[in-house]
């Protein structure tokens, strides 16, 4: 028996919005420690790694480890049926063919359940090696989404350069060029509005706008986003998910041919 109950059910709705355009299907791996999902996009350019810790759920029971293959478009359709304030429970038997989503209104007067067929997916899991990043930028998630959207008008790539002075986002194309520079915040009252930079060495890499814009679908999950960069390593874009976990996106850079 597997059962995971989350009073803040809207988190699940936001997670699906954050992955459904990038991934068509994925395996949800459930165990004692919680729920994880790892999947590459179809073109194998990026990797999504989601982690939801069991202690972050209001109720969590997992008698046996199980892997549930799901079509994320179908799962998203079902989660759209949940209200923003609904309590969401995910339930499955051991060795399941189906998974059940139960939505309860806050006052307990409405309860709906949706059963979805599972898929047998034979997906590769990748080893994500530990690394010390050369640059780690923390900034407001909404600001990052805005910059990616704005610069996407100029070309299909964004260059992210990070130095002691700050972080610079650049794009160029047929209509011209664009640069957005952010300095490290000197004095912030609200932590979530701060821009902070931890730098070992300056870096500058080129990334595809298309994927960055997919990643920013996670913006509603978190006030801040963390961008981590190193030579010979993919960009990591991380959004914390309340006190339950995080979603990380890894993106391979564009390199000189």
């Amino acid at each position: 028996m597997f059962e995971a109950r989350l009073a803040k059910g809207a988190i699940f709705k936001k997670i699906l919005e954050a992955v459904k355009d990038l991934l068509t299907e994925a395996s949800w791996d459930c165990g004692d420690m919680g729920i994880t999902l790892q999947a590459m996009d179809n073109a194998h350019v990026s990797l999504v790694s989601l982690n939801l810790r069991s202690d972050g759920f209001d109720k969590y029971r997992c008698d046996r480890n199980l892997t549930m293959g799901m079509n994320l478009g179908s799962m998203s359709k079902i989660l759209k049926c949940a209200g923003n304030d609904d309590i969401v429970t995910i339930r499955a038997q051991d060795n399941p063919d189906t998974v059940t989503f139960v939505f309860e209104s806050e006052n307990g007067e409405k309860q709906s359940d949706y059963e979805m067929k599972l898929m047998s997916l034979d997906l590769e899991h990748l080893q994500i090696p530990e690394t010390e990043y050369a640059c780690v930028v923390k900034m407001p998630a909404g600001e990052f989404a805005r910059i990616c959207r704005d610069l996407s008008q100029f070309g299909d790539s964004i260059v992210i350069s990070c130095s002691k002075q700050g972080v610079k986002f650049s794009a160029s194309g047929d209509i011209g060029s664009a640069n957005v520079k952010l300095a490290q915040s000197s004095n912030v009252d609200k932590e979530e509005e701060a821009v902070t930079i931890e730098m070992q060495e300056p870096v500058s890499f080129t990334y595809a706008c298309r994927y960055l814009n997919f990643f920013t679908k996670a913006t509603p999950l978190s006030a801040q986003v963390k961008l981590s960069m190193s030579p010979e390593y993919p960009l990591m874009v991380e959004y914390a998910i309340d006190d339950i976990g995080q979603i990380r996106y890894f993106l391979a850079p564009k390199i000189e041919d």
Binding site: V45, S46, H125, Q127, I128, P234, A252, K254, D257
Partner: peptide
């Protein structure tokens, strides 16, 4: 000229 790298050139299969 730049080209898009694949994620598997950085992360290997488990």
């Amino acid at each position: 000229k730049v080209k898009q790298a694949g994620i598997m050139s950085f992360f290997k299969k488990k």
